[in-house]
Design a protein around this nucleic acid. Structure first.
Lengths: 129, 129
DNA sequence: TTGTTAATGCAAGCATCTTTCAAAAGAAGA
DNA sequence: TCTTCTTTTGAAAGATGCTTGCATTAACAA
């Protein structure tokens, strides 16, 4: 997603484009590998980890980035480049992720609804080497 | 899974059935809700959390329990009652889980292999209320 | 330029899980 | 039963990943 559009999304919510936010976006925009908060911090000269956490969270709510939960529960972030719902195949070693073009959600969610569940979300990630 | 069979699985690996292991199994066998290590500890009179963590890990490797990763990365455990591979729909509030009888893994893994990945595993959980 | 509010950095805190190690308990044989 | 060997345990400390509180700073609209 382009910075211009992101500024607009921020403004829409009464939020501001700041130096730290610009730097975080720079980092995320210049890689295809999903990054953890720490990865992002490491790539920026001087930024607090808290600031990174708060901003990826903000970007997540704005739909600017998406989050992938790794085996073990650690979270990594990637710029939202595709608008359609999709999942990933993730390398356990380097954490590089590729998009998969398939999601069985509709089938599953039908079954889940039959069981009486509402407000469904799902996690589906494939891991390999 | 019945305790008898579990003792056999332990012995197979040169491991022992102990009081703490018995108690952990009791707790897991007497509920349908997946439990966290802390949940299990709370239900037992006097057991160290470390012991719980170590033993659910052991049981996991033996195939006696399976692990569910909640949104947020926390892990919970449930006695393995079905032998076939399956996934869950999990309540975000009470963590009660029901089994789903569907898994798209084979389709997805074909695609993942085409991308050059090996040693595939996957996480697929559906959450709701 | 000024005032308002959002955003930052720092410190501390918290939840979950792991490692280390000495002591205790289980299993097997004498 | 006693001995010996190995597994298992519990206690303490540590690691990791993320969050909260709060005083200060920076956006940005008027």
């Amino acid at each position: 997603m382009e910075t211009e559009k992101i500024v607009a999304r921020l403004k829409q919510e009464g939020l501001r484009m700041t130096k730290p936010r610009e730097k975080i976006l720079d980092v995320l925009q210049s890689t295809s590998v999903p990054l953890s908060a720490e990865d992002i911090q490491r790539d920026i000269d001087s930024i607090d980890l808290v600031t990174v956490y708060r901003n990826v969270e903000t970007f997540l709510h704005l739909g600017v980035v998406h989050r992938i939960i790794l085996e073990g529960g650690k979270q990594v972030f990637q710029i939202e480049s595709h608008s359609h719902h999709h999942h990933h195949i993730i390398c356990r070693e380097c954490h590089k992720a590729e998009c998969l073009d398939f999601c069985a959600a509709s089938k599953i969610e039908k079954q889940a609804k039959a069981l009486g569940f509402t407000q469904l979300t799902h996690v589906f990630e494939v891991y390999g080497l």
